[in-house]
Nucleic acid binder design. Structure first.
Lengths: 287, 287
DNA sequence: TAACATTACGTTAGCCGTAACGATA
DNA sequence: TATCGTTACGGCTAACGTAATGTTA
């Protein structure tokens, strides 16, 4: 068997063409690399380079060897990656979500069920969520679209409708509903950590009117101190506090109303059965 | 990246369950193996064993790691095997054949065309020949059945018909033809290196009547010194010498008449075009 | 002469084995 | 006590860096 360091050095030489360039890249001396390549050829029993005019050039066999060396190193890296992810998945529950509201809900539900495990949660795009489920980076993902994937178990979770928040003395304050096109001239305060909602806002509204805030505290202060508009949602109002100085107006665009789905790997479904049961019964209570 | 020797040692421990047993198997000391496993866990950043009661037991993560370690070592071994075979295929032409007669013919044809390369030839079963072509162990194979395989280029080569050889004073000597069933009471001298013909003889004739000889010289001496029967073929008589003290009688069974095919990989076909052309024109001359 | 590879030589890191130790059945 | 694993210590292999040498453009 060939030691890994020889293959790494070999691929360095293949990539950088000369021993000197590769040695610098690999942070070892040129003579050391020269010896390593000799050793590799010795162990394979096959010449990988032709040495002429103080140049080393890959042979045909060397090119073949490079292809297979790549595969060997890739398998080695996959071992490392997979084992670390697997260990992580045993000791913690990792949740990815496309939006913050359902994440906090699911978080507390999971905390009750897995009190002995660390919960890690983060926002991510839908495709990153699905990839993450598949490679065990996430155990749960909250999506806003039904994925078409055999490997995933998906359960409908909860709906959320965007509301537009305005001071009570705003000209639009007595409207029964609004649409994104009505808002295009309004300055709007927005929290950066809203997941996929950010993309919808960026698509529907002029960028220069979106005052995006990194810190929630700052956002709240600004809402209190100014007459700028902002967003909320039906489910946030149900659980959170309503600002008495503001009115909340529904948006009639179809993008403002989403359904969230909770997903896990099919192979994990049994393990998390009680989670999905809780969600299902909670959904029934809401109906 | 994880060095190869650590993975080999790890899989040794996985297989032999205890450090002491694995150490003996791997021909290293037990403490060395103990340190290696610690180092592996250290480098992965993940525990692979639980250590209790002076026992080490694989964790769930350890089992996953073993699976991936196997793949990594397999990729490493494939690198070695493939590179060696590839180098071999560049420097020599390797021919496998199901029978000796066409092999010697093809051998001399190839010798003319590749005077700068070493020719290696050997007898083998048809399935070993096809496998050998596919993994570049052989560049050419002589088969006696048309293979059904997309990856292979196959050209009809030559026919051979078995003849039965008898002393002129043998009761069967004036027969025009014979069949295997006629021969079942005769003692028959046979050379071991006849390739697939051996299987046909073993199927059609009683084992105790086959006097198989390892050395061709011995066979010839025995044929001259005894009245036992033996085999020859039409093409052998055409190129070789006919024994004036013997008669040669055709066998009417369909198994006694075969067609040989010369095969190579489709991807190599262009490289060997002139070889196949020579064969084709030689075949036309015989018609 | 500048760039590149190889050879020579001394240093050092790290892998190994022996021996001693600790724990368990 | 026998078995198994870990720790401690010293040796030795072999990978490394520096320096010198050889070769070509």
């Amino acid at each position: 068997m060939i030691e890994t360091y020889l293959l790494e050095q070999f691929l360095g030489v293949v990539e950088y063409k000369t021993l000197s360039a590769a040695a610098e890249e690999l942070h070892i001396s040129q003579p050391s690399l020269s010896r390593s390549m000799k050793k590799l050829e010795e162990e394979l029993g096959v010449p990988l380079f032709t040495r002429e005019n103080s140049k080393i050039i890959l042979t045909e066999t060397g090119k073949e060897a490079a292809e297979y060396a790549k595969r060997a190193l890739q398998a080695n890296q996959e071992l490392i990656d997979h084992v670390r992810l697997y260990e992580r998945s045993l000791n913690s529950i990792n949740i990815g979500s496309c939006a913050p509201f359902p994440l906090s809900q699911v978080n507390s539900l999971l905390q009750e069920n897995f009190y002995d495990k660390t919960l890690l949660s983060e926002l991510a795009d839908d495709d990153k969520l699905i990839k993450g489920l598949k490679n065990h980076y996430y155990q749960f993902a909250i999506l806003h679209e039904l994925p078409d994937d055999e490997a995933l178990f998906v359960q409908r979770y909860i709906d959320e409708s965007l509301l537009f928040s305005l001071p009570k003395d705003h000209p639009f304050a007595d409207r029964k509903e609004l649409s994104f096109s009505d808002l295009k001239d309004l300055k709007i305060l927005l929290y950066r950590g809203v997941g996929f909602w950010m993309k919808i806002c960026e698509n529907k509204l002029p960028k220069e009117n979106l005052f995006i805030q990194d810190r929630m505290e700052t956002l709240i202060e600004l809402i209190e101190a100014t007459a700028f508009a902002s967003f909320s949602s039906d489910v946030i109002l149900q659980t959170g506090t309503k600002d008495p100085d503001r009115v909340y107006i529904p948006l009639k665009d179809k993008e403002s109303c989403v359904t969230y789905y909770l997903a896990c790997l099919n192979s994990d479904k049994k393990k998390y059965d009680n989670i999905f049961n809780s969600i299902r019964s909670a959904a029934l209570r809401r109906m």
